[in-house]
Structures are given as structure tokens and as C-alpha cells.
């Protein structure tokens, strides 16, 4: 029982990490059609932001809370720069964005190595996040609980922006029909920039969060980028609710598979499952229905 609860939570927790990593991607990949291979490196930038902030604010608790908005800003600004310099020239050439952003990812990795050195750096977890709470005898790590909450807050924030603000309406309009949106007076340029800012900013927040569980090094992003794409593709491109369901489903299933087999086999089973699922439902869990004629 104790183990079952522990494993259920492990699954939810893994799901929340996947969701955080994939949330921004479901905006930039899903809504804008940009394959951003540098998304993982924006996470890495967020993680190093947590490290830099902690160097100037020695209290680990305060520095974590400060890092979250700063990480959002750093990730967002990097995204904005990438969009302004490179991506806006290739919106109709998704394969080119794949190659270009892969190059940018390599550049960012090297930059991190040059600035912070090749070894991983240590970001301390605040005292109030060390240890665990017991749930029916199973230890629930506080850092994991924090990440779960953070992912839900980010999700709620994103949904609120998309559904409740003029910006969100513009984003949705551009996704549904870019040309019609343009015709009706929406600046698609500005909308694209803001969408990319938010999507990349969320990667920065995810980066701050994962410093609590893993190492902070130049290759941090490469651990998450594949899983993030899997979540977005399985969830249905362009669908936030699809990404949420896919993230938690993958998290729980991976924990179950890993528990009943081994970590490597578990990973294989997940990939097989996704391949089979996409054969049956290539559009993912949810698909976008548009009336676009273009």
C-alpha cells in the first residue's frame, strides 16, 4: 500500500515535470508550428538563472521564489531574441526551424560551458523543501510536491491568459486562421512574438523547477526535449488540455512500467506505446478542428 501510494505519486510527479517542460512547447510548437529544438536550452538557461540568483541571494528559499519570475523573464527574452533574429524569417518552413534551432541549442550549450564551466553546478534546495510529508506511510518528497503545484499554477496561469485576456483571444484567433485574423486587424507579428515569449518563459520556469531534483549543467535541456515533444505530439498538436492529459498519462505509465520492469525497458515500453497510439490516432488525443480553407 505504502509502495503503491509512493509509486502513484512518483507517476504524478514525473507527469508534472513533463507538463512543465512541455507546456511552453505546446504553445510554440503547437500553436505556432515552430519546432524549437532550443526549448531544452531555454530550460537550461532557467536552471542557471536559479544558480546565479542563489549566488546573490544566499537564502535558498527566497532565491527560489525570486528565480521563478526571473527564470520566466530570461527564458522569455531568449525566446524573443530567437524569434526576432531567426524564426520570423522561416515561419512557413518548419524543417528549417528544426535545423536552425538545433544549431542555436548547440551554441547555447557551449555558451553555458564557457560561462559556468563544464562541471555541473549545485543549486541548493531551501530548507523548507527538504524532507517529505507522510501520506499513509509513504514519503512524499516536498520538492516533488512543490513542482506539482508549480506546474498546476503555470497551467492555470496559461489557461487564464488564453481564455480570459485579449492577448489570449488574439493567440487563439491566429492559431485558428492566421490570414483571417490578420484581415480582421490583429497584428500577427506581435501576437507571434508574445506567444513565443510566453512559451519560452515557461521553459525558463521549468528549468528553475528541475534544479530541485537533478543536476544543473550545460546538457540539462537534452534530458527533457525528447520527452517534451512526445507529450505535445501524443496530446495533440496545439492542444493544451491534450498536453496535460498526455503528460500525466505518460508520467504514471512510465512509473508503472519502470516499476514492473526496469528503467531502460520502461522507457522502451513507453516509446512503443506512443508509436502504436500515433498509428491509431495520428492527430493525438485531441485534434484541432478548423474551418480554414487556405
Amino acid at each position: 500500500m505504502e509502495l503503491l501510494i509512493g509509486q502513484m505519486f512518483a507517476g504524478l510527479s514525473l507527469g508534472s515535470v513533463l507538463l512543465l517542460a512541455a507546456l511552453g512547447l505546446s504553445l510554440t510548437f503547437g500553436q505556432m508550428g515552430v519546432i524549437n529544438m532550443a526549448h531544452g536550452e531555454f530550460m537550461m538557461a532557467g536552471a542557471y538563472t536559479a544558480f546565479v540568483v542563489q549566488r546573490s541571494i544566499s537564502d535558498a528559499g527566497i532565491s527560489l521564489l525570486v528565480s521563478i519570475p526571473v527564470g520566466f523573464l530570461v527564458g522569455g527574452l531568449l525566446g524573443l531574441a530567437l524569434e526576432a533574429v531567426l524564426l520570423r524569417r522561416m515561419y512557413h518552413r518548419p524543417l528549417d526551424t528544426l535545423l536552425v534551432t538545433f544549431g542555436v541549442a548547440l551554441i547555447l550549450q557551449q555558451a553555458a560551458r564557457d560561462i559556468f564551466g563544464a562541471p555541473s553546478v549545485d543549486v541548493r534546495a531551501p530548507a523548507w523543501l527538504q524532507g517529505n510529508v507522510e501520506l499513509l506511510g509513504a514519503p512524499i518528497p516536498l520538492t516533488r510536491l512543490f513542482i506539482l503545484l508549480l506546474s498546476l499554477v503555470c497551467l492555470a496561469g496559461l489557461v487564464a491568459v488564453l481564455k480570459g485576456t485579449p492577448l489570449g483571444r488574439r493567440i487563439r484567433a491566429v492559431v485558428l486562421n492566421r490570414d483571417l485574423a490578420e484581415t480582421s486587424g490583429i497584428s500577427t507579428r506581435r501576437t507571434d512574438q508574445l506567444t513565443f515569449f510566453i512559451g519560452s518563459g515557461l521553459a525558463g520556469v521549468a528549468g528553475v523547477a528541475v534544479t530541485l531534483i537533478g543536476s544543473t549543467g550545460p546538457y540539462l535541456g537534452t534530458n527533457y526535449i525528447v520527452d517534451a515533444f512526445l507529450v505535445v505530439v501524443a496530446g495533440g498538436v496545439g492542444q493544451i488540455k491534450g498536453a496535460v492529459i498526455a503528460a500525466f498519462a505518460l508520467g504514471v505509465l512510465q512509473s508503472v512500467f519502470e516499476f514492473s520492469t526496469t528503467a531502460s525497458i520502461g522507457k522502451v515500453l513507453i516509446l512503443v506505446l506512443i508509436v502504436v497510439f500515433l498509428q491509431l490516432r495520428p492527430q493525438g488525443i485531441f485534434s484541432l478542428k478548423t474551418r480554414s480553407l487556405a
Partner: peptide
């Protein structure tokens, strides 16, 4: 065009 792009994205990913 939108649906074609989305469909094309899956193998790309």
C-alpha cells in the same frame, strides 16, 4: 493549409 502543416509536423518531430 493549417491541417497540412500540423500533419506534416508529426514526422518532423
Amino acid at each position: 493549409r493549417v491541417s497540412v502543416t500540423k500533419r506534416a509536423l508529426i514526422p518532423l518531430a
